[in-house]
Design a binder for these strands. Sequence first.
DNA 1: ACTGCGATGTGT
DNA 2: CACATCGCAGTG
Length: 192
Amino acid sequence: MKLPRAFYARDTRTVARELLGKVLVHQDGGVRRAARIVETEAYHGPEDRASHARAGPTPRAAIMFGPPGFAYVYLIYGTSHCMNVVTGPEGFPSAVLLRAAEPVERCLHSTRGPGNLCRALGIRREHDNGRDLAGDDLFVEDAPPPPERILAAPRVNVHYAGEWAERPWRFALAGSPWVSKPAPIPPKRRGR
DNA sequence: ACTGCGATGTGT
DNA sequence: CACATCGCAGTG
């Protein structure tokens, strides 16, 4: 069964954690593709320097200010699409980036990493940005709470965000081989 | 482990 | 016009 809008209308970090183990489904031109979410990141509020909403409701980020339960899909580096789900109350800019998943049904490609995940499910900005997740084309299916432990770590590739880069708002299922970076990279040790 | 770069939208 | 919620190929 499809997650209701009320699921998304909560604190971003809660939604990010609870999305782990749920199944992202894309009806790609009549073909159903699905993957079990194993890694997410929370982008929370207008003060979050790592968030696309940091500059206010610009054309790209405006959807993050809208009601919860809609897809925010953007293009990065000219080549990769990334998908978020909008969370929280309308007017408070927040979203959860879907970073990695475990392939379940007819995936076209690796589902590890946010760009790869979109490619595997056929999710594209032109086609899916702004889509209502309460519809039948793109949604998340409920699933029992995952048996795996949940890890929290700093978000990936947001080094420019100062202290906000250190917040442990990246969540992953422990032990999943599909998580995009198996473990936070251990600092290099010399000698000892 | 580290380096470089694609191909394009986005905000300043 | 600098740079991005990445991914890949090349090198050591």
